[in-house]
């Protein structure tokens, strides 16, 4: 038996042994199931649908007061501001919640079912398992949940404006949106390595995303080290406004730094987990 079929053995960097195959599995969980098209349809409808209401439904624009319109400069500027606000402020919270819900089970489910144990009984290192989860889900979420809505939103803004919407501020805001979503993705994965039940993973993630503004309001320095103010930052950045560091670069940088820290902690925790 052993000699009947000769195959080429895997030659993979030993510190990441198993990563390629596990990444394939994570990607397959998105792209090989109906999950991909459900998300590819859901998020543009959810995020861009609300924005389209703001941009194109006259009845909504008519609700604006004269003062609001004159403060914005024109009716078009007003509805675009409203559209950006809905897309980024509501959209980022929705995407964060989406990432938490979609990934809360990713590690815990496999720990509970024994799938993680089975996978790690193969020549696989624990860090490859965590990194494959992060990379595979990041690629899918960025392309399915963010990519489509961002392109559609930019197109709608350009149509409403009658010319191309300024790309730079919009891309900056889209970048903030991406960092914000990745923060919650990484946080959820890390919590999945720490806890063995879904409750704390969902609870901590949702408390952060829904209650963060409240906490930040009570103790302002929290805004500097958390992503809680970033939805507002993205919305204002997209409008082309320059922001003070405490509202822009500082929370964005700290949020960005949290992502690799969470992944590192997840790796350390998972490497020390007995399955």
């Amino acid at each position: 038996m052993a000699d009947s079929i000769q195959l080429n053995h895997v030659k993979e960097w030993s510190v990441l042994r198993g990563f390629t195959n596990l990444l394939h599995k994570e990607s397959r969980a998105w792209w090989g199931t109906r999950r991909w098209w459900i998300n590819a349809i859901l998020w543009p409808i959810l995020l861009c649908g609300l924005m389209a209401n703001m941009l194109f439904v006259p009845a909504i624009a008519n609700l604006a007061s004269e003062a609001e319109i004159s403060q914005a400069g024109s009716l078009t500027a007003y509805v675009i501001q409203m559209g950006l606000s809905v897309f980024f402020e509501f959209g980022m919270i929705a995407l964060g919640i989406g990432a938490i819900i979609l990934l809360q089970d990713s590690i815990i489910g496999e720990k509970q079912s024994g799938t993680a144990e089975w996978l790690l009984s193969k020549p696989v290192v624990a860090r490859a398992y965590v990194l494959a989860k992060f990379v595979g889900n990041t690629l899918a979420i960025l392309s399915l949940m963010l990519g489509g809505p961002i392109i559609i939103a930019y197109s709608m803004l350009s149509i409403r404006l009658g010319e191309l919407f300024p790309a730079r501020p919009f891309l900056l805001a889209a970048g903030i949106m991406t960092v914000h979503t990745l923060f919650y993705l990484a946080l959820t994965l890390m919590l999945g390595t720490i806890f063995n039940t879904r409750g704390p993973v969902l609870g901590i993630g949702l408390a952060s995303i829904l209650g963060g503004n409240l906490l930040g309001g009570l103790f302002k320095p929290l805004f500097y080290v958390t992503p809680w103010i970033l939805p507002k930052t993205a919305s204002l950045s997209a409008s082309g406004l320059s922001l003070p560091p405490e509202m822009g670069i500082i929370p964005l940088t700290t949020t960005f730094i949290w992502i690799p820290i969470f992944i590192l902690l997840a790796i350390i925790k998972f490497e020390n987990t007995e399955l």
């Binding site: 195959l7 080429n8 053995h9 895997v10 030659k11 198993g18 390629t20 195959n21 394939h24 599995k25 397959r28 969980a29 090989g32 199931t33 079912s113 024994g114 799938t115 144990e117 089975w118 009984s121 193969k122 020549p123 696989v124």
Partner: peptide, 27 residues
């Protein structure tokens, strides 16, 4: 394992090919 685990969204053959890929690259 005591209760064998599989990747549920894959068929039996796909599970085998997935498992084999931990050891072999091809052909």
């Amino acid at each position: 394992p005591q209760q064998p685990r599989f990747i549920e969204y894959m068929s039996a053959r796909e599970n085998l090919e997935f498992t084999a890929a931990f050891f072999y690259t091809g052909p």
